[in-house]
Amino acid sequence: MRVLLADDEAIVRAGVRSILTTQPGIEVVAEAADGREAVELARRHRPDVALLDIRMPEMDGLTAAAELRSTNPGTAVIVLTTFGEDKYIERALDEGVAGFLLKASDPRDLISGVRAVAAGGACLSPLVARRLMTELRRAPSPRAELSGARTALLTQREQEVLGMLGAGLSNGEIAARLHLVEGTIKAHVSAILNQLGVRNRVQAAIIAYEAGLVKTTDLA
């Protein structure tokens, strides 16, 4: 899979590149120091995944994500965040971002996240999930009632799966907790996304938080 990396800090780009390029099948095809350059390089290289820092000069990562959605719909975007940037998550969802990872994440989370979104899925770091849950508890979304009504249409098992999905657990981790095969969880997730009318797991996770389905014990 082909990856574009955009961050205004050269040392961050170098660190992420060194992690990704040790993995078979992952190639960093371009690097950018700002969002505008990232959009131009994406048009040229057509990457499968773009890793974008939120705060960059010229054009921030979320504006770049919006540009990529219209010009490179085949490129999935992962936003690299730091603690204290939770306020950007809702806007990022509107821009079609497929994942959120902390710059301080375990390298394994970065690798699995890139592979997940390249395969059409999404990724949500458990640490980001915990922060998001805290923020939503502090300032409940006005959409909470609507989200509750939407999830009420799901089966009890689907609500259980959605709650764990919202906590940032992978299909395999959910399957292990529920003592089911991973294929069954994948089918549940597909049904959940379809029922909720959302594009990916991250958008479903937000609804799970708003509906109060995420349990603290499920957060890593």
Rank of each mutant, 00 (worst) to 15 (best):
V12L: 02
E40P: 06
D86V: 13
E67N: 11
R157V: 13
G96Y: 01
A211R: 01
M1I: 08
I26L: 03
Q203H: 11
K103G: 01
A220D: 14
T81P: 10
F83C: 15
Y88V: 13
S147A: 00
A50S: 10
I54V: 10
G74V: 12
L162G: 10
E182T: 09
R108K: 06
A191M: 09
R201N: 14
R17S: 05
A76Y: 13
I111L: 02
C123W: 04
T21Q: 10
G212K: 02
S190D: 14
G74L: 15
I26K: 06
A129W: 00
G168V: 01
A118W: 03
E95H: 04
R131W: 01
L219F: 14
K186Q: 12
A149R: 03
A76R: 15
A65Q: 05
R46S: 09
K87P: 08
E31Y: 13
T22A: 04
A14N: 05
A32E: 09
M59D: 07
A208K: 01
E158Y: 08
M59S: 06
A64M: 14
L101R: 03
A167E: 10
D8E: 03
S125E: 11
A98T: 00
L180V: 10
R143H: 04
M56P: 02
D60P: 15
A139W: 05
A30M: 11
T63D: 15
E160Q: 15
D53L: 04
R17P: 01
E37N: 03
A122G: 06
K215G: 06
E31D: 06
N200A: 09
V97F: 00
E182Y: 08
T81H: 12
I11D: 07
V77D: 06
E182L: 08
N194K: 15
L153T: 12
E85N: 13
R157D: 14
A42I: 10
A10S: 05
A30T: 09
R108Y: 02
V117T: 09
E135W: 02
A42F: 08
E158F: 08
A66S: 11
A211T: 01
A139P: 04
L4V: 06
V77H: 07
G166W: 11
I19P: 04
L193V: 12
Q203P: 00
P142R: 07
V128S: 13
G61H: 11
A116R: 06
D8K: 02
L68N: 03
V114C: 04
R150Y: 04
A38R: 01
D109M: 05
A104M: 00
E145H: 00
I26F: 10
V79P: 12
